[in-house]
Amino acid sequence: MKQLIELEINGQRQELLVEPHTSLLQCLREQAFLKGAKRGCDSGGCGCCTVLVDGRAVYSCMTLVMSVEGRSITTVEGLSGEGALDPVQQAFIDAGAVQCGYCTCGMMMAARQLLDDNPDPSEEEIRKGIAGNLCRCTGYAKIVEAIRLAASRRQGHSVGEAG
């Protein structure tokens, strides 16, 4: 039986008609037409589908959309505001952390939560922070570099801003 639920996606409230078994990933991709979260495995193994629910990174393929009713969802499309990229996005470009790019959006969402929790992470903390996200192109070296770069830019730019 389909059911009408309300979600806040990237700051906008939306009503969606979903099945009890619809995953958040399916809902985002097929009904909200947000293609940034990707399906890589559908079993919580790769992290390509990572989005933020109330600021926490989750595998959207393993999250039933009904379980996040009324909560605030942030996808990669919600990262950049008013024409400016999020520091994490810009750092991924500048550090050369994007190759095929299929893991990139999920990886950046994991990085966003990491940096929100810990604005100045060590290399080990960065590596642990993205351990739930697989990449097969980069060997992670430039991804780690990008997150470090984003951290330093955020610190430089976010003085006085609320967390």
Binding site: G36, V76, E77, L85, Q89, I93, G96, Y102, T104, C105
Partner: peptide, 21 residues
């Protein structure tokens, strides 16, 4: 020169053009 990848901007903002889409 390590120019920025021309496809990187699109990929960090959602990656519209994968065959899966």
């Amino acid at each position: 020169r390590s120019i920025p990848r021309p496809d990187a901007f699109d990929k960090v903002t959602g990656g519209k053009h994968y065959p899966v889409n």
